[in-house]
């Protein structure tokens, strides 16, 4: 039981949107599709949904080609949110559900259920244009799942939501997984990926540069991270980097209250602790961790993607701590 994207390529004129992209998603998993803007995520999703046809390659779900699957297999939350602004919420949702062959009674019941879940039952008869952006987005999510699809594909589902709504949406994700649904979404918020996803794929300029279970991906990095905080000014960190005993150590992201040190696999983290104590530092935090997805992302996609994408990423990932 899985979704398999097999050697899919797609060009638009001279632009290569997807280049021999392959990955697979286990049924029932929550899967993160990562990549800078313009990397090919949306094209990839549209091809999986069969609203675009690839130039070559194939997409299968449980061995069956996506071109042969019924439309209601899929739920889709596009990146560009769009609803009929002048239509009322319930009428609109019932119309969209009817396109998937959902009976009117079922649609009404599900609408009631989801509006309550999202704490907006009063908006049932409001026009969509009267709703806030965040609430429109919730309606859009409901539109994507009313027909109870097996696979839910969401393009940037969290962008533009306040923390409370992010929480509600995450709960909805988990509820969908409880029902045995497969969820695929793209995001720039690495914390969210770490929190929700079992597996990821990173797309860079149309190519899948990394994919697999989050756990395996982290291990495969072959290094670890030490999060260190002292009550001093941290000037000793520069000395640490120069020590022979700590060869290969790099001082990474400097966060508000700690510093991330990256060390090669053969370096014992305790050496750092000892070196710091020798320099008379008072340690307030010492934590051995696996590299964060953010670092993995940066390593594979490069700073280029992040610099190009400052506005988008800065909000969700405090890159490099250089501010």
């Amino acid at each position: 039981m899985s979704l398999v994207v097999d050697r899919v390529s797609k060009r638009f004129g001279s632009v290569v949107a997807l280049d021999d992209a392959s990955f697979s998603v286990e049924a029932g998993a929550i899967f993160g599709l990562l990549g800078a803007n313009g990397a090919g995520k949306t094209t990839c999703m549209r091809i999986v949904l069969d609203i675009l046809r690839p130039d070559s390659g194939s997409v299968t779900w449980n061995g069956q080609s996506n071109t042969a699957l019924p439309r209601r297999t899929w739920g889709y939350l596009p990146e560009e949110r769009g609803l009929y602004p002048k239509m009322r919420v319930e009428e609109q949702l019932r119309f969209l559900a009817s396109l998937y062959g959902v009976s009117d009674a079922d649609a009404r019941r599900e609408i009631t259920d989801w509006l309550e879940r999202f704490r907006i039952p009063d908006y049932r008869n409001r026009k969509v244009e009267e709703l806030s952006k965040g609430n429109q987005q919730k309606i859009q999510f409901i539109a994507a799942i009313l027909h109870d699809p097996d696979i839910l594909i969401m393009d940037e589902p969290f962008s533009g939501l306040d923390p409370l709504n992010v929480r509600l949406l995450k709960e909805a994700f988990l509820a969908m997984r409880e029902r045995g649904k497969t969820l695929i979404f793209s995001t720039h918020q690495m914390e969210t990926v770490e929190e929700l996803c079992e597996a990821i794929a990173i797309i860079d300029r149309g190519r899948v540069v990394l994919h697999g279970l989050v756990r395996d991906v982290k291990r495969a990095m072959g290094r670890r991270v030490v999060r260190l905080a002292t009550d001093g000014d941290g000037a000793f960190l520069a000395e640490l980097e120069k020590l022979d005993a700590l060869r290969g150590l790099t001082v990474g992201a400097r966060r508000a209250d700690f510093v991330e040190l990256q060390l090669p696999a053969d370096l014992d983290p305790e050496t750092i602790l000892r070196a710091a104590l020798e320099r008379g530092q008072r340690i307030t935090r010492f934590e051995i961790a696996e590299p964060s997805l953010e670092e993995i992302f940066v390593e594979h996609v490069g700073r280029r993607a992040i610099d190009e994408d400052e506005g988008h990423l800065a909000a969700s990932v405090s890159v490099g701590g250089t501010k």
């Binding site: 949904l49 609203i51 439309r71 899929w74 889709y76 596009p78 560009e80 949110r81 769009g82 609803l83 009929y84 602004p85 969209l96 396109l99 998937y100 539109a143 994507a144």
Partner: peptide
């Protein structure tokens, strides 16, 4: 108004 992408999926 971008509702098209929903319609074309359905």
């Amino acid at each position: 108004n971008r509702v098209m992408e929903l319609l074309i999926t359905a």
